[in-house]
């Protein structure tokens, strides 16, 4: 009797619907927190929780490649960079300015507009419910699951979409160079370019005349 790990007892207990609902709920709450929470640092953490839940939902939808990518790109790079920015400037930012009177209304108006737009696009496109990722009873649906597997994504990236793929790599190279140029300290005098860290050329104030504490 070949032992097969394939068939989990998925269907006996609707675990994935439960997972979906809690992911969605946590995502909504953390999304709200990002906007409303007092300290910017907590907003950063809430945003990361939101990204992780998005990755969870991608995984549930049967596209693990997107989930892993989401975790890697958003949580690993963008959120960390954002937290870095928050940490480095936290001291300098004065306490949160109290929002003026009509700001919440502006926010409400914009969100309603956005919701309308989303509703239009979602309702107009055809979705076949393909069942959850691992359920064997994969009903025939508009989008079959296998098309989203990694190999297909890889193949599509390099054959039909080869040109945009190359374009993106050029753009990334450009941003990399710009970042390095931006982050350089003041003009590095050629003399001390050999020091391990690029020390500023400003003459170091003699240590023996310290500022009076």
């Amino acid at each position: 009797m070949p032992f097969s790990m394939d068939i989990y007892a998925w269907d006996s207990f609707p675990i994935d619907t439960l997972l979906f609902w809690c992911f969605a709920a946590v995502m909504l709450i953390s999304g709200l927190c990002v906007v409303t929470v007092k300290r910017v640092f907590h907003a950063g953490i809430a945003m990361i929780v939101c990204f992780v839940c998005a990755a969870g939902i991608y995984a549930l939808l049967g596209c693990p490649f997107m989930a892993a990518l989401q975790l890697l790109v958003y949580v690993g790079a963008i959120a960390t960079m954002l937290l870095f920015a928050v940490m480095l400037t936290d001291k300098m930012m004065e306490p949160r300015p109290n929002t003026t009177f009509f700001q919440p209304f502006m926010g409400l108006f914009a969100s309603v507009l956005l919701f309308g737009l989303l509703w239009l696009t979602v309702s107009s496109s055809k979705f076949g419910f393909a069942g959850w990722a691992n359920s064997t009873a994969a009903s025939s649906s508009a989008i079959d699951i296998t098309s989203l597997s990694t190999t297909n994504i890889g193949l599509r990236l390099l054959t039909p979409y080869a040109v945009p793929f190359e374009l993106i790599s050029v753009i990334i190279l450009a941003t990399l160079i710009a970042a390095i140029a931006l982050a350089r300290k003041e003009d590095r005098s050629p003399a001390d370019s050999g020091t391990p860290a690029d020390a500023p050329a400003s003459p170091a104030e003699p240590a023996s005349t310290p500022a009076k504490e």
Binding site: I48, A68, L69, L71, V75, G76, A79
Partner: peptide, 11 residues
């Protein structure tokens, strides 16, 4: 997945 999850430890 193995490369993605350590980004949580970084955070």
């Amino acid at each position: 997945y193995i490369v993605a999850v350590p980004s949580l430890t970084v955070f």
